[in-house]
Design a protein around this nucleic acid. Structure first.
Lengths: 141, 141
DNA sequence: ATAAATCTTAGAGTAGCTCTAAGTCAATGT
DNA sequence: ACATTGACTTAGAGCTACTCTAAGATTTAT
């Protein structure tokens, strides 16, 4: 069994990983720029396996949880579904034996993001072509 | 009042614009790589203002419609909502007087796509950092 | 101690597809 | 000529990932 630190330590380059509960959902939301709704939604879906709650049931995010949130956002934005993220979380909680499988998941996402960048560049070109056309049209009047 | 050609001619760089109805929804879908469902959905939403139907009510896409579909896809992928696309379509059908407004819409989308590319690059970096970490971990075993 | 702020949950609402079902129509085989 | 096939139509249901709302609990400020 593995802990939060193992899951996210690759994200903490310079700072030692801090798992002490510190931030309310509102504070966390502001720090990671993800809506409170989404943070709660992700937690409800089990995507914060190490998130703590105080006696009153309030969520308390640590620095490590914030880093983890950033990874979730990255995976989601690159097209991973909630279900697939749940699977990834599960693999993380199982432990080191799942590293190769986790590697494959991220490798696949890496390719997807690369393709997305290519697509975005195409979109940009198309928009700029139209803008250029409109600009010329305006000058010709 | 403006026609289909005006709306999409900036997209037809080398080829003369062809507005003759040619392709069924299935054929069009394959050509532009957008699902039949989505093409019908966009048409139902009024996003193909010049799309023709034959006597039996079947949609017939011209080359110009295919180019237009590509633009719709681009706008959608860059984050424009259906409502905003409907507005853009409306401006196109009104005519030349709306070119400045259309320009502003596309200019805004250009900025958005540029930001999206930056975001994607950040995501890629994060994934590659994790991949690198996993790789090192595997070798260390 | 009362009011305001901040949190909780369950569940409804939304956007943009995505799919299904039931029916229409043209082309082809017998 | 007529049935079958297959590609199309529509209306509307279903899905995903949020996004918001309402009702209630707890903390904080006066």
């Amino acid at each position: 069994m593995v802990n939060m630190e193992d899951c996210v330590k690759s994200l903490s380059m310079d700072h030692p990983l801090d798992t002490t509960p510190k931030y309310s959902v509102t504070q966390a939301s502001k720090l990671v720029e993800i809506s409170e709704h989404t943070l709660r939604y992700y937690d409800d879906k089990g995507l914060f396996p190490f998130l703590q709650k105080n006696t009153a049931g309030k969520r308390l995010f640590s620095e490590a949880d914030l880093q983890w949130a950033k990874l979730l956002e990255c995976l989601s934005n690159s097209g991973l579904s909630i279900k697939e993220m749940q699977k990834y979380v599960k693999l993380c909680t199982i432990g080191d034996s799942t590293v190769p499988e986790r590697f494959e998941i991220l490798k696949k996402q890496e390719k997807i993001v690369k393709d997305q960048i290519k697509e975005k560049k195409k979109q940009l070109k198309l928009l700029q072509f139209k803008l250029d056309y409109y600009e010329k049209w305006c000058r010709r009047i």
